[in-house]
Design a protein around this nucleic acid. Structure first.
Lengths: 243, 243
DNA sequence: CGCTAAAACTTGTACGTACAAGTTGAAAGT
DNA sequence: ACTTTCAACTTGTACGTACAAGTTTTAGCG
């Protein structure tokens, strides 16, 4: 299900090539004029593709120089564990199922306000613990409104990527996010899930994801152990750390 | 020092008018064509201004409908690079000076890596505690490379906005940010600064701000009490919560 | 060889046109 | 009174031109 929009096509191609190391981190992309000539697009269209790559943190543009590949990291500046893929390979990440996907009513006291459409539809809920090297780092409890997402419970596997599943199965893309963050003490349940002493400080994060389907939003409640790995993110245009 | 760029001028005007309730939250801005006619600008220029407003969360654009005012000031947007006084009204914020601005060498163990230019220049350092309604919420310790920022120590007042001071005095704008976040226990000093019991969970945040001056970066170390107010932010394009 | 100035790049801003596609409300038809 | 259709909006995409401004390379001069 590829887009027919010219700037999206170019954006996807460049993103794929960055991820595949065709353009390595620190190197410069072909100039806008080169991309125009190669793809037979107007410069404004090429700039639209590059602009999206920049806003998602893949490249940094510098006047007079060019578009420099900044990072291979994924879209959206989600708060993520530092060096989740760099320091430890994805093979060392393990997932423990706490609650397999099931359809249920919404919790009575939910951490975000729901509209009537969502409230009436009920939700799909699942929970999992993600670990690195056997050490539990994150307890994640996710709630999806049960709105026209056929076969979700049957098809989604907890040890795979939730966002990739949404994209492949329903052509759903995450377009934005809001979150609230607290420092909290691990209560007995969280302490047990993350194998911590009760009362240990943990990050508590409530997230609402927006999607490209109007009025469909996804909710996540996270508890994170930051004793070994910090959570990190970046936003805006960050200078290149040369010199 | 206002910008001479047309799209920046329009952006600033619209932002100011949103903050002043000329356009209330939930209402629609004048259409792009109306803005073109009123300001004698091309539509692409108007769209550039609106695009920046959208990326910063002030408006949401919907095809066929218009540009809807989403938020006056990205409420409590502490985790994005907007800064403290922009999110809660400045009238309720009180500031306690812990360390007046002074020139000093960098701390031996600094929380971000410094390049040689920064290391050699030394730093300007100040610390303050910010409270809302008399309740200390945040302990902030800021470090700025002492690079061509004349009169900083003399002119910066701790109870004013740091980012606004940088903009007005040096035409420095914050263009981006990276941060790392932990949940930590308040040590004796932090507990005293934030008037908390020792061991209370607090958010610890290390930030690096990028500016429009190449190679000039600003560093901040924050400790936040989240018992009453959560930290929050948003990124990407978030759906309108209507229905 | 070393320095300077100009040329040849790069991205940024600003203008314009044209049409596609989503939304809304009014007019026309039943 | 109700439904359907259509016209009049809205933003989105894509094309194009021109010049400004920052960076790097090159050519020329002393």
């Amino acid at each position: 299900m590829e887009s027919t929009l010219q700037y999206k096509i170019l954006y996807n191609r460049l993103k794929k090539e960055i991820l595949a190391d065709v353009y390595q981190v620190g190197s410069v992309l072909p100039s806008e004029n080169d991309l125009c000539a190669a793809s037979n697009l107007a410069r404004s269209t090429v700039r639209q593709a590059l602009s999206q790559l920049e806003s998602e943190g893949f490249i940094v543009k510098q006047k007079g120089k060019g578009s420099i590949v900044k990072s291979k990291s994924r879209a959206l500046n989600l708060l993520s564990f530092q060096g989740f893929s760099a320091m430890v390979g994805p093979e060392k990440i393990s997932t423990l199922s706490v609650q397999e996907p099931q359809i249920q009513p919404w919790p009575v006291k939910f951490f975000f306000e729901l509209n009537e459409l969502e409230r009436g539809a009920g939700c799909i809920h699942f929970s999992r613990v993600r670990s690195i090297d056997g050490q539990p780092l994150m307890y994640e409890s996710t709630f999806v409104p049960n709105l026209n997402l056929p076969q979700f419970v049957r098809q989604f596997k907890l040890n795979s990527s939730f966002f990739e599943f949404l994209a492949k199965t329903y052509q759903l893309e995450i377009t934005g996010m809001e979150q609230e963050i607290w420092a909290a003490s691990a209560d007995p349940e969280i302490a047990q899930r993350l194998q911590l002493a009760e009362g240990t400080p943990v990050l508590k994060i409530c997230r609402k994801y927006a999607t490209n389907r109007a009025h469909l939003q996804v909710y996540s409640l996270l508890y994170c152990n930051t004793s070994k790995y910090a959570m990190s993110n970046s936003s805006g245009v960050v200078n290149q750390q040369s010199i």
